[in-house]
Nucleic acid binder design. Structure first.
Lengths: 252, 252
DNA sequence: CGGCTAATTGACTTTCTTCAATCAGTGTGG
DNA sequence: CCACACTGATTGAAGAAAGTCAATTAGCCG
């Protein structure tokens, strides 16, 4: 297991200049909410690609949101089998379980250099008691994440290898698109086929062969690290259903 | 799809007499919390076994907690494939997604005659603004459910048929035990092998064969509807890991 | 005793995994 | 600039796991 580096920052971008606030998929803060969040954020954390910064079994003292970069939540079995639960992109919250429960039941690893906003668990009660709208946002984020996992569960349980591969690629593309991370129709996916396999619940070899068949349809291309959805309708047809988007309701 | 009957009640058990409050796995309410919850609960709903009372795609006007009985959350694909996401037992909350987001992304069906406490979405903001501790409880419940689904996802993605079957039976048994639903070491599981198959992401035939092999180990028995864990350590060994319990932190 | 649902079983096919190479791209040191 | 090492992608072959089809059996209920 790579542990790698996680560096606190000390001085960091203040919330009123947060680049994520401009995203259309996030709601506006009121002045007092912004004021609170500004002092709620106590640090910014930089994590190297490949490093895990939250570990199954560990107590979590902080809550995080992704400011930039990609990460993934995963669980390992004793014999080394790994299941990727989902991917975290900018504006996603990470570590809520460890904050609300007493212990993390999964780990989180950075796929790219990652910047996180750090919020102390100790001030969470203050948030809940003084900013019910923010508390509701946290609940919203938890419910949204559950929806994503539900959909993923359907993939692993009931979709064929081809369907679930198409669905996951489409899902990731659409999420990246929402965040403005698609340039010229291409989204940079910062992971290997092994990551894909561990997310899809398939072996690496079978993932490779399935992917090859999928790319042969021309509905989607994945060259180098660049993912391009060339024919969304066709890709959705292969996946069996299109991915659904959520109405905006943000935290940061 | 069976739609069945859902009958509002009108007069119902008041919260101070709620039979669930005695459970050791739930925390105590303060007097004012109890007072609020009492008027937050506007009705009690009785649902017949086999009836779905929340539907994918529908707007949800209410939030529910299970007072008695079993239910399950599920999603269907267009061609009829069904994936059971998880099971809801007494003290579980149901319909949060539909309340927090605008639309349900899954359906819920009763496995037994089901009694639900009904809470109006309209008063949720009042709860969040006046009872932060209750708001936190809701977040806790959402995080806990996510943990359960995470574990289920690992089963479908990375555990063998035998492992995941053992794990699910153990999981259900332990949850039932927490709720005092195990009598003389036996828990009544109100579902068929088809339900089990849809939860495990396996075909009915393969589920049957796997189950038979599992029962042959004598670690667990399932006769009629009665599930008995005869050797928890052995069952956990077959599952690959034991199920973890959560520290108490309740809502109702 | 029929009629119905759920559980079982055997035979066969398909999907997926595992094993074992091989190939491709990248970066390093000489 | 090239040999070498290393990681990630690709392939083929063989075997295991899981699905499908088609009966049959077991229980239950009126």
């Amino acid at each position: 297991m790579i542990v790698g580096n996680a560096r606190p920052n000390g001085h960091f971008t203040p919330c009123e200049q947060c680049p994520l606030r401009a995203l259309p998929c996030l709601r506006e803060f009121t002045a007092s909410e912004l004021e609170f969040v500004k002092q709620f954020k106590i640090d910014e954390l930089h994590v190297d690609a490949g490093a895990s910064f939250l570990h199954e079994g560990a107590r979590a003292e902080h809550l995080y949101t992704v400011l930039s970069g990609w990460a993934f939540r995963y669980k390992m079995l004793d014999d080394g089998r790994r299941q990727i639960l989902n991917f975290a992109l900018p504006a996603d919250m990470v570590g809520l379980q460890g904050t609300v429960m007493n212990e993390m039941e999964h780990s989180v690893e950075a796929l790219t250099p990652l910047t996180l906003c750090v919020f102390p668990r100790a001030k969470l009660y203050e948030l809940y008691s003084q900013f019910p709208t923010l508390a509701f946002d946290i609940t919203w984020l938890a419910a949204r994440e559950e929806q994503l996992i539900d959909e993923h569960l359907v993939s692993l349980g009931r979709r064929t290898a081809m369907e679930r591969t198409a669905f996951l690629l489409l899902h990731l593309f659409v999420r990246a698109q929402e965040l403005g991370m698609v340039k010229d129709g291409v989204c940079q996916l910062p992971f290997t086929q092994q990551h894909l396999a561990d997310a899809l619940g398939l072996s690496l070899v079978h993932t490779n062969k399935t992917l090859k068949r999928l790319l042969a349809t021309k509905a989607v291309s994945w060259k180098g690290r660049g993912l391009e959805v060339r024919d969304r309708a066709a890709l959705a047809a292969i996946a069996g259903s299109d991915v659904s988007l959520h109405k905006p309701r943000p935290f940061i």
